[in-house]
Design a protein around this nucleic acid. Structure first.
Lengths: 174, 174
DNA sequence: CCCCAGAGCTGCGAAATCCGCAGACTTCGA
DNA sequence: TCGAAGTCTGCGGATTTCGCAGCTCTGGGG
C-alpha cells in the first residue's frame, strides 16, 4: 500500500480500491463502499440497481460489494425499533468500575441477552452498558444479581431511561 | 391450495389483531407483527415470502404489514456499522446536568448531526448523549463550543470510547 | 335486524429485482 | 513475461416485488 491516496478525484471505481487492511485488521473502506453504505442507511431495502446508479457502479458490482461488506461484518442490514413499542418498558445505562483486566467483565456483559450495548471508556467509568428489560424487577435482577456479582466489579451506577429523544443510524451521511 | 389454513392453533392472524392503540399513542403490536420484526432483525432483506412462511401469512399480507410498520415509524430497516470502520475515530458518551426544563436542551442536542443518541435519564445525569466525531479536535469542539454553551447546561462529563464491545439490534428476539 | 364502511388477508399476473456466471481488465508478484 | 487474484460488466433465468380485485370479519348506524 505505497500510494495512500484514498480518493484522488471522486467516484471512478478504478481510482479507489477497496479491501486494504489497516493495521487493526479492520478493512479500509473506499468512497464507493461508503456511498453504498449511505444508500443503505437511508433504506436498507433499496434495490441494487438504484444504489448502483447513485454511486456509479453496475447492479452486479453493487451486489458483490454489499455481500462482501456483510460477510466482513463491516455492516449489517437489520430492522431497528424503539424498544418501548415492542414491550420493553425499562432501559438503563449502567456505568461500571472494576479492578484489573476489564476484558473479562466486558465479555461477561456481552454474553447477557439483556445487554444491548457494551463499550469500554476513559473517564470516571470503565465500562458503559445499556440494558433493555421488560420491567423494573427484571432490571433490578440483572443489575444486582448478574452484573454486580461479576468478579472484579467494584461499583455500578445506573441511569434509568425516562425518554428516548433521538436514535439515528446515519453515520457517514452528513 | 385453498385449505391452506396454516396454523389454526397459535398463529392464526385473526386471533391477534393489530393496530390497537395504547393510551400513549404508540401502536400495540400483536404476535404476528412481532414475528415479522424478528425476522427482519435477523436479516433486513429477507424476502416477504420467506417471512410469511415463518409467521404464517401470505406474501402480500407480510408486505402490507411491513409497509405499515415502516409508515407508523415502529421500525426502520437500515444498514448499521461500527463507526470506527467508516472513519469516525472518536466517540464519546456525554453526561449532562442542566437547570430548569430539560426539553429545550435535549432538542438542541437532537438537532446536532454529531449527536447520535439522546436520552433523558434519572440518576446523577439528566441527559446522556452519544457523540460521533472524526477526531479529537472535532469532539472537543462539539463539547465545548456547542454543548456546554447551551442555555441551562450546568455541567458535562465525557466518557471517550476506547473499544466498542457489543452492539445488537435483537430486541424481541429472545 | 340489515346494510355498509373499514381493515386485513389471499391469489394472481406483470414488472422489477436478484442471482449466478462467463468474459475482460488491472494489479501484483514469481 | 506469465499467472493468480480481485473487480467490474453484461446477460439470461429464477425470484421477488408490486398493484389490484375479491373475500371475510367486525363494528357501527338507521
Amino acid at each position: 500500500m505505497q500510494s495512500e491516496r484514498v480518493a484522488s478525484r471522486s467516484a471512478d471505481p478504478r481510482d479507489s480500491r477497496d479491501s486494504r487492511e489497516s493495521r487493526s485488521g479492520t478493512p479500509q473502506l473506499d468512497a464507493v463502499s461508503l456511498g453504498i453504505i449511505e444508500q443503505l442507511q437511508e433504506d436498507g431495502r433499496r434495490p441494487y440497481a438504484a444504489i448502483g446508479k447513485a454511486v456509479g457502479l453496475s447492479e452486479a458490482a453493487v451486489r458483490q460489494r454489499v455481500q462482501k461488506l456483510l460477510d466482513q461484518g463491516v455492516m449489517q442490514i437489520v430492522a431497528v425499533t424503539d424498544p418501548l413499542t415492542v414491550g420493553f418498558r425499562r432501559q438503563a445505562m449502567v456505568g461500571i468500575n472494576a479492578d484489573g483486566d476489564l476484558e473479562p467483565v466486558a465479555d461477561a456483559l456481552t454474553a447477557m441477552p439483556e445487554v444491548e450495548y457494551v463499550v469500554m471508556t476513559a473517564g470516571s467509568f470503565d465500562i458503559l452498558a445499556e440494558i433493555v428489560c421488560e420491567d423494573d424487577d427484571h432490571l433490578l435482577d440483572v443489575i444486582n444479581k448478574r452484573i454486580r456479582i461479576l468478579p472484579g466489579v467494584r461499583s455500578t451506577e445506573s441511569f434509568v431511561y425516562l425518554k428516548l429523544k433521538k436514535q439515528t443510524y446515519m453515520w457517514g451521511t452528513r
